[in-house]
Design a protein around this nucleic acid. Structure first.
Lengths: 349, 349
DNA sequence: CGACGCCGTGCAATCGATTCCAAGTGCGGG
DNA sequence: CCCGCACTTGGAATCGATTGCACGGCGTCG
């Protein structure tokens, strides 16, 4: 009952046409545009299609039409809350517009992005949304970047207000809590692998940290700047432990990412450092369930889903619009960030 | 420099053939199987392909070959840690085997699964992996279910050992902590929407809870069983508050899902109930950063990625094998769960 | 020295839907 | 009463890659 005949062969348009007693061209018009077909035949064709439960072969359609109504999304890690939520936003917008989203996960592996883009192009996607990219060649379809940006190649980009965000965190530590010995644990800076991106998130955050510390006149020994490479909880934990073992350990740390901040929290716990008394911790990204952590994590509210939606909107514009024409007014949209004060910074809240 | 000519038109196999001075059939063989082509021409064709940076059109190839080398994955919520990680496992295995993964997010909306399956079929996927499904018709390609299972339709299924898992949690509360007043907050039971699944995760967990409570001779007022509908933190929080406001409130709660357990934690916090002293909380699924929560959450370790890998392996078997033949030995694989004791149950750890 | 066989190559059909073009029908107006 | 236009319909080309079949050439064996 559940499975019917041994998968007889999917009915084709020709089968429907035969069943309805018309030619396949007429059947196509009846099911498609509806123009140039009498109401009577249209009804007959629809009935036949219904009866055979006909599903048009999208491959053939796309091949003929030259458009797949699909866009590719390239992200480093779908399982990360940030990208997962962004994906949701992207899908919302694009599916409402009749597009499909093909997700490729690069796992942060070098070169996988290029490979992913090539493969998606081979699958004839109409457009691309890319989180991080190390390539530079012409992609051949409209591209929107987000989070990490190469505007020269794309039709536009969405990025976080990295500099303002980091300043928010550092200023809070300095001005409200009088912190002076603040360290930074950030994502690895992979510029230099032959890429010269215009907006490179990791570097922006680092530069902003240096700038904020400088503005506040903080001492900034080189040991206070660390990178978690590869970007995951384990390397961050190690970095955190190294910080705590310095002769002059910091009394506050800024985590450049939620994963990193969580790693630092684990380091503090492992070394018996109380948070925030011995070590205040703040995070750029908001970790999941930030307010149920011990202590609740002070961080920046990010509007992930909204970022996804904006990126998708940008791409849709390029897809519907005249393509390259949209490039002029595009540029990089910055998404603002809001400070969410909790307890890990030292606040009572 | 970044973007080349105004996207001249992608080179086709015919272009490559012309550039190499051969027919397109020869070019195809040279780039493909390599058989029936002299070494000299093969080299010439490859050089030409390289020069034009030719990418074969997968649409045309798939149309002709009758296989897309793509499989669809249908999940309720990619942004949820569970599904995100499963997706990773699935991708690992399938991409290693040369397949692509098309992810569709249903957002737990009724009917969206059916729609997703139809659409994926129209895109000619070679197989499907489905988390939850409300349909029953013949799908026409090999299907593997996971987490929630309709084995009649598919070639196999991966599911969690729901009954054993719940028993682990309840027994621990009863035997180690002497708990008697234990409540349950679970995912909504959507059977009855015309579906009669063989393994329906939500119902299995509920039944297991009832059974475990019965075995231990616990009182089980109807009020102690609650459903969070729709499945999210907010409804769980409400359910938790309602439990705390009962005349005879429970002293322990089992959350049927990590999201639900977190909602209960929020409820306890909102009502000033101390965890675990006033209310012990345990969770079926392990929430992200379970050990950094306040209190660290006792829950079941799930091996998400392994589940994804197993599901993908199962599908690959059906894809390579003889299809329906594999159905015989398939059945439902159960993934065992391990209790991770932390503090939210009342343990000192 | 002749014939058979294999290797390399090109021609053409094919996958399934769309769409341009031509042809057939019916109708109304002149 | 006839011509022509509008409306339907079918035929055939097309998208781009793959593949069965046929053909020409060369080597080898009898």
């Amino acid at each position: 009952m559940a499975s019917g005949e041994p998968t007889a062969r999917r009915p084709t348009l020709a089968d429907v046409a035969a069943a309805a007693g018309v030619s396949s061209s007429t059947a196509s018009r009846a099911l498609g545009t509806g123009t140039h077909v009498s109401a009577r035949t249209r009804a007959r064709v629809w009935a036949a299609a219904e009866r055979l439960s006909f599903q048009p072969n999208q491959l053939a359609r796309s091949l003929r039409r030259g458009s797949t109504m699909a866009v590719g999304l390239v992200v480093p890690d779908v399982a990360a809350a940030f990208y997962g939520t962004v994906l949701k936003g992207v899908q919302e917008v694009l599916e409402a517009a009749g597009y499909h989203v093909l997700v490729v996960n690069t796992g942060r592996a070098a070169g996988r992005e290029r490979e992913a883009v090539r493969s998606l192009r081979a699958h004839q996607v109409d457009g691309l949304i890319i989180a991080t990219y190390g390539g530079y060649e012409d992609i051949g379809v409209p591209v929107v970047f987000f989070d990490d940006v190469l505007p020269d190649v794309g039709v536009g980009a969405i990025a976080l207000a990295n500099a303002e965000g980091v300043a928010l965190l550092v200023d809070h530590l300095v001005e409200v809590h009088g912190q002076r010995r603040i360290a930074y644990v950030g994502p690895p800076d992979s510029s230099g692998e032959g890429r010269t991106p215009a907006v490179f998130t990791a570097r922006e955050r680092l530069d902003a940290f240096r700038a904020s510390a400088g503005r506040a006149g903080l001492p900034l020994p080189p040991d206070y700047i660390r990178f978690a490479d590869p970007l995951d909880g384990a390397t961050a934990r190690t970095a955190g432990i190294e910080l705590l073992e310095l002769d002059e350990p910091p009394t506050a740390v800024v985590g450049g990412t939620d994963t990193l901040a969580m790693g630092i929290l684990q380091a503090a716990r492992a070394r018996g450092a109380r948070v925030p008394e011995d070590l205040a911790v703040v995070s750029f990204d908001e970790p999941p369930y930030a307010d149920l952590l011990e202590p609740p994590m002070t961080s920046l509210d990010r509007h992930d889903r909204e970022m996804g939606r904006r990126a998708a909107d940008l791409l849709l514009g390029a897809l519907n619009g005249l393509g390259p024409a949209a490039r002029a007014d595009a540029g990089v949209q910055r998404v603002p960030l809001a400070l969410r004060v909790r307890r890990s910074c030292g606040c009572a809240a």
